[in-house]
């Protein structure tokens, strides 16, 4: 015996079936993405803390290790001062330098165990010295040996640290080197490099754009520089690529960086043949 839907019911059936399929697709499509997120992982949060205040003030923050693996991990908390020597960052053990900020860091607890499929948190309290030129520390979850290598093998363990920066005054300044324009080739895009030095006393995160103008002064295109943090005294090359083709001719590139309400600009001319 065959069962026939009446005409209206048949339409209703098609309508609801289509909706059911759409709903199923909607919920099933993100599955690979969700599964990727749920893959075993060990992560530290946050990666960066940016603090503002004054000398003598204190900061308390919670750092969390999320262990979504089937193994337990043990960590010892370690604080390091981050200084800049010859334009590059150097990490020093707490107390090795005068007016160390890391030396004031108190971890509670000092050691933790992150059980499988759980998270564990540590509170860190930092009290800034009354006078210090330092502006950053690293609070490191130092992994205790989780592997026991056998003969003929190399054990690898990874420790993760949270960078904590401090802005204590409005003395922010930036020095820019001349712009370097790398002309496009058959296999590379046009790229612009701009070296910046933090000549102030505070950490800054310059956000920059390179604007390309043609010979008539008309805007041809623009491209954002990759964002990087500059600690006082640090020098980094900021890089951006312009992916579109430029016709042969004369051009002008204007690089503008903004930081803490200030602006730094550099410009130069170049010719595409």
């Amino acid at each position: 015996m065959k069962f026939h839907f009446p005409h209206v019911l048949s339409h209703f059936w098609k309508f609801t079936t289509l909706h059911a399929i759409s709903a199923a697709l909607f919920f099933l499509c993100p599955l690979p993405h969700l599964m990727a997120q749920q893959a075993p992982s060990l992560s530290l949060s946050p990666a960066v803390i940016m603090a503002k205040g004054a000398y003598g003030q204190s900061l308390t923050q919670r750092l969390t290790i999320n262990n979504q693996t089937s193994n337990a991990f043990s960590f010892e908390m370690v604080a390091q001062d981050v200084i800049v020597r010859d334009g590059k960052r150097v990490f020093l053990p707490a107390g090795e330098i005068d007016n160390s900020i890391a030396a004031t860091a108190i971890f509670s607890p000092k050691e933790i165990v992150a059980a499988p499929f759980s998270s564990a948190s540590v509170d860190v309290t930092i009290t800034l010295p009354q006078d210090t030129s330092l502006r950053a520390i690293a609070a490191v979850f130092r992994t205790k040996s989780v592997v026991n290598p056998t003969s003929g093998s190399v054990g690898l363990t990874a420790s993760m640290g949270t960078l904590i920066t401090f802005n204590l005054s409005d003395k922010v300044a930036l020095a820019a080197d001349p712009i370097t324009v790398n002309l496009p080739t058959d296999s590379t895009n046009l790229s612009v490099d701009q070296a910046l030095t933090n000549t102030g006393s505070e950490p800054i995160i310059p956000k920059g754009v390179a604007a390309i103008l043609n010979g008539k002064g008309q805007l041809v295109g623009k491209s954002s520089f990759a964002v990087q943090r500059l600690l006082p005294g640090e020098k980094l090359v900021f890089h951006t690529e312009y992916p579109d083709q430029l016709a042969a001719g004369s051009y002008h590139v204007l690089c503008t960086f903004q930081f803490e309400g200030k602006t730094e600009s550099q410009q130069t001319d170049f010719i595409v043949k």
């Binding site: 060990l42 530290l44 946050p46 990666a47 193994n71 991990f73 992994t143 040996s145 592997v147 363990t157």
Partner: peptide, 26 residues
């Protein structure tokens, strides 16, 4: 505060075998 960090180890086609991947490997 912002972001988070994680470390994972992966074997490469021209590399040695790896046991374990997250934050600890052999």
């Amino acid at each position: 505060s912002e972001g988070n960090l994680s470390v994972d180890f992966f074997p490469l086609p021209d590399g040695a075998q790896i046991l374990g991947t997250q934050s600890g490997a052999t």
